[in-house]
């Protein structure tokens, strides 16, 4: 063991310049990711407010309370619902759009790529402000368009029935861009021989897409699925801008609940406990997806 450690130490010393170069990155990771994570896990066992030095150890009490808390249950349910709605919609839509764009010329491809990626560049906050106007019940564009076909105005953001779907729709608009770029890149690098062979075998467009293109895209699809899932688990700014989680928590998410609990109610211990639950949830889902990914590469 000691010999191993000595060996490791010698190895590090030998490569000290390299380690020195990667040190800033690791230090930043430790300072801004690892330490806050460790502190948050620790804090979840305390009753703590902004007066952090007055915190009181309560063991698992925060966790026990969470699972009987109606608001937490709603947020957990909504978060899972966001993932189940937005992620498949994003992956599916971006895939379809990419398949439609791919056969076009380079100029057209660049245009569409830019057009679809633009919302991702603009960011959730700016888009949400625009959507606030679009969703306005009295002068919003959406209700105006619905009115043209004789549909009564809808309270997109002010009704428990629609607010979740309104938020999902907005999230979808700026999550599409990145997968489209990835899918287009993957499509451009597909093995042309296999595609040509399928044509020689008499496969039509649909059969070629279904039996050749999609299986070849599987690793990219799984990668997009994993990154989108993690991203949607963390949906926050759109909810903050559009609905503040309401009405009656119908559009809230776990991350938004963390924000409310920590920064409005000043309950850092409770907020940390919610954060830990979210961490576990994301970890489980990501591990499952990674397993799928591993299989797809075999």
């Amino acid at each position: 063991m000691t010999a191993k450690l000595t060996g490791l130490g010698r190895e590090i010393w030998r490569n000290r310049v390299g380690y020195l170069f990667i040190a800033p990155g690791y230090l930043a990771f430790i300072a801004f990711m690892f330490l806050p994570l460790a502190v948050a896990i620790g804090l979840s066992f305390y009753k703590a407010s902004f007066a952090i030095d007055q915190r009181q150890f309560v063991g698992l009490l925060q966790y026990e309370r969470l699972f009987t808390n109606v608001k937490f249950q709603k947020a957990l349910f909504n978060t899972i619902k966001y993932v189940l709605v937005v992620v498949p919609a994003t992956v599916g839509l971006s895939l379809v759009i990419s398949l439609l764009i791919h056969p076009r010329g380079i100029k057209a491809q660049s245009f569409y790529r830019g057009a679809f990626y633009l919302p991702a560049v603009a960011g959730g906050v700016i888009l949400s402000v625009v959507w606030l106007w679009i969703f306005n019940p009295t002068f919003g564009l959406l209700n105006y368009l619905l009115g043209l076909v004789g549909i009564e105005p809808v309270l997109w953001l002010a009704s428990t029935r629609y607010s979740f779907w309104a938020v999902s729709m907005v999230v979808l608009t700026f999550t599409l861009g990145q997968p489209i770029i990835l899918f287009l890149a993957a499509l451009a690098n597909l093995n042309q021989d296999l595609l040509d062979a399928s044509v020689v075998d008499g496969a039509n467009n649909w059969q070629r897409t279904w039996y050749v293109t999609l299986p070849l895209l599987r690793p990219v699809i799984l990668f997009v699925l994993a990154t989108q899932t993690i991203g949607v688990f963390q949906v926050w700014e759109t909810i903050y801008m559009l609905t503040e989680g309401g009405p009656s928590s119908s559009s809230t998410s776990l991350v938004f609940l963390i924000y409310q609990t920590a920064f409005i109610a000043s309950k850092y211990g409770k907020a940390s406990a919610i954060g830990v639950v979210l961490l576990i949830l994301v970890a489980i889902v990501t591990l499952l997806q990674l397993r799928l990914w591993d299989r797809s590469e075999v």
Partner: peptide, 19 residues
Amino acid sequence: CNYNEVRLAWAEARQAFWE
């Protein structure tokens, strides 16, 4: 105490009330 949290709950109640 916990005035801000009560106000959040009150905002939620008012939201439900307008349904």
